[in-house]
Design a protein around this nucleic acid. Structure first.
Lengths: 201, 201
DNA sequence: CAAGCAATGATAACAGTGTCAACATAAGAG
DNA sequence: CTCTTATGTTGACACTGTTATCATTGCTTG
């Protein structure tokens, strides 16, 4: 999604036009989200480190929220891809389902700031915006991805409830770990996720 | 915890000294947390609406984070009280345990901004602070409160895993609802919480 | 009761932020 | 080659948290 830019840092002859400032800004934002727990995604700070004036970013994003939304969307796509990958790799059935849940927590631990940004932004998407389906699409994929890995032999309602149960469990576990309430222990994560049993629903 | 102040609004003869600015600030902050989804807890905004200068609050809080910490602590105490209340009211056993979990979600729905503040602040408590146990104490109470309502007949490890499972489930469900990912449906909440079964651990 | 000290408040200022309007430059289309 | 459009810059405004300095009040102690 983010095209490869010349990684040689800031251009030496800094031309008046940057080339692809939008992609560069998103890339720098993503790098910070990946490398720092509480990244500084301020417009001025980003522009400064991009070697560009503070208001240049307004030619590519209507405001700061739009930039954050773009980053959150990219993060949502990456999370969805990771989930889909885990689902196919683990195969179907109960075991596959468990692995997908564990993958969710692992991904959250590996990309804490990005996961936080996703849920911060997703919560206040303006459904009356120009393109209401961009973020919603990615979210829909994530949710159906979760539902798709449900064990067989359930009614539609059961599947919905079970999907919500599973999503809540791994999301809550991830958030508690990210918030420092629970130490990250892969064995414990597996144990907790395995405690879910759908026999009585 | 917050002593009752004269509720007659701002004093007419606005004396030089406010009386109990700290309590008034906390009360106003708490009111905003209870009545707005995304309350403005800025120091200047609070001071302005309190009819006081921007820097007056620095006589009662070393910085903004300290004010937010105080609000989060109060929120944590309220949440803990609500949990304890639900625990005793529901009695022990599996049914009581279920009710406590449901209460957690209900409390989150009723106090969304406050729950968010709690977990935002709790995540970055400075354990080297002057009084490292204030917030930690309240959290410890909340966690033991959860563990205390576990069904009987479990080993210590089982209890720990089961408590983490339960906490993760209701916390995740609450967060998804607060973030607008899932509509709040009490029946659905009950259904999802009831899906947890500890028979196979 | 008076004096003095500590607690509490106000003002001014600094650095930082998001955002807008006006202006400058480069790139591409006719 | 010219003109339009895209892109970047400068300056400004209204915010924010925070600090240093000064003003006022109230409590304590002689």
């Amino acid at each position: 999604m983010l095209p490869n830019l010349p990684m040689s840092g800031l251009p030496v002859n800094a031309p008046y036009h940057h080339g692809d400032l939008r992609a560069a800004a998103l890339q720098m934002g993503m790098e910070r989200l990946e490398s720092q727990e509480q990244p500084d995604l301020g417009l001025r700070a980003l522009a400064r480190d991009l070697g560009v004036s503070a208001t240049a970013l307004y030619r590519h994003f209507p405001n700061k929220d739009a930039l954050l939304d773009a980053l959150a969307l990219e993060g949502l796509n990456r999370l969805g891809r990771s989930q889909a990958e885990a689902a196919t790799k683990a195969g179907g059935g109960r075991d596959g389902f468990t692995e997908v849940g564990i993958t969710y927590v692992e991904w959250a631990v590996e990309h804490p700031a990005l996961l936080r940004l996703i849920y911060n932004r997703v919560g206040q998407v303006d459904l009356a915006a120009d393109d209401p389906s961009v973020m919603g699409e990615a979210l829909y994929q994530l949710r159906t991805g979760i539902a798709a890995t449900m064990p067989d032999g359930m009614s539609k309602d059961q599947r919905a409830a079970a999907a919500l149960h599973a999503w809540s469990l791994v999301h809550g576990l991830a958030m508690l770990i990210l918030d420092g309430q629970v130490p990250y222990d892969p064995a414990m994560v597996r144990k907790v996720v395995l405690m879910t049993d759908f026999r009585d629903c």
